[in-house]
C-alpha cells in the first residue's frame, strides 16, 4: 500500500487509556498533495488520533510512519522536526509575544530551521498568506478569534511541513469567517500541501476533502472519496446516533 506518494501512514494504531480503548486498530494512508478528512461523531477518537500522530500521546500498539520512516516512537519535538505540524483544538497563542513572534515560533526549531532575516522574511510571507501582514506587531490579546486562528495557521505553515494536522481549525467561526477559513484552506490545497483535518462542519468537509476516513467508537468504519463516504448508510447511521447529526 505504501507507494512512493504516501506521506503518512498509520498501521494497526491502537491507543488504550487504562481499560478504555480510544483508538482501535486504525489503518489509513495519506498521499502527497492530498487533503484527508478525519471525521466521525464526538468521542470517536479523531482528536486522539491527531495527538498520536503529533506525538502528544504515545501509541499503545501499531506504527505511524512518515515517508516510510517510523515516527510513532519519537517524542513530539522530534516528530515536529521531521515535518509534522499541528494546530490545537483550542487555539493556543503565546500571550507574551507579538503576532510575528508567535508565527516565528513555528519556523525556528521545526522542520525548516530559519533564523534572523531569513526567518523574518518567511514569517512575513506567511502572515501575508493568511492576511495578517498588517498586524505583525499586535499582541494576541488584541486579535479577534479568527485572527488568532490565522496566526496559528501561519505558525504551522512557516516551517514548511510535510504534513499539516488541522484539529477542528474551522470550529467556532461565524458564517462569514467560515467562508474565509474554507477559502484559506482551499488555497493551501491548491498549493499542493498535504493536510489531515479533523472537522465537524459538513460544508467544509465537502468542499475541502479529497478523501475521508470515518471513525466511530475508536474504529474506522469507512474510507473513500468524500461524496461516496458521506452517502454510505453506515456512516449516516453513526452520525444519526448523535444529537447534532
Amino acid at each position: 500500500m505504501s507507494d512512493h506518494r504516501t506521506v503518512l501512514s498509520l498501521q494497526g494504531v491502537t491507543k488504550r487509556f487504562g481499560g478504555l480503548i480510544a483508538v482501535n486498530d486504525l489503518d489509513f494512508d495519506v498521499a502527497e498533495h492530498e487533503v484527508l478528512g478525519l471525521i466521525g461523531p464526538n468521542g470517536s477518537g479523531k482528536s486522539t488520533t491527531m495527538n498520536l500522530i503529533s506525538g502528544a500521546l504515545s501509541v499503545s500498539e501499531g506504527e505511524i510512519a512518515l515517508r516510510g520512516q517510523v515516527i510513532s516512537d519519537l517524542p513530539p519535538h522530534k516528530i515536529a522536526r521531521r515535518g509534522v505540524a499541528r494546530t490545537f483544538q483550542l487555539v493556543r497563542m503565546l500571550p507574551s509575544m507579538s503576532v510575528m513572534e508567535n508565527v516565528m515560533a513555528g519556523g525556528v526549531f521545526g522542520h525548516r530551521r530559519r533564523w534572523g532575516r531569513d526567518a523574518e522574511r518567511q514569517v512575513m510571507k506567511m502572515l501575508e498568506l493568511v492576511g495578517l501582514d498588517r498586524r505583525a506587531n499586535a499582541r494576541p490579546s488584541e486579535l479577534t478569534y479568527i485572527d488568532t486562528k490565522r496566526v496559528e495557521l501561519a505558525r504551522v505553515l512557516v516551517g514548511d511541513p510535510k504534513v499539516l494536522l488541522l484539529d477542528e481549525w474551522l470550529a467556532g467561526l461565524n458564517p462569514t469567517e467560515l467562508e474565509e477559513g474554507i477559502a484559506l484552506v482551499k488555497q493551501l490545497r491548491d498549493e499542493g500541501r498535504t493536510i489531515v483535518l479533523v472537522e465537524h462542519v459538513m460544508d467544509a468537509i465537502r468542499s475541502l476533502c479529497d478523501r475521508c476516513v470515518v471513525m466511530s467508537s475508536g474504529q474506522k468504519i469507512a474510507e473513500g472519496a468524500t461524496e461516496q463516504v458521506l452517502s454510505d448508510p453506515e456512516v449516516i447511521r453513526a452520525y444519526l446516533g448523535e444529537d447534532d447529526a
Partner: peptide, 20 residues
C-alpha cells in the same frame, strides 16, 4: 527564543520542534 516559548506554553513549544 525557545525559552520564551516554553514559558508561554510548553505544549506549543514541544510541537514546534523544541526539545523543552
Amino acid at each position: 527564543f525557545a525559552l520564551r516559548i516554553i514559558g508561554d506554553d510548553e505544549e506549543v513549544a514541544r510541537h514546534s520542534g523544541i526539545n523543552t
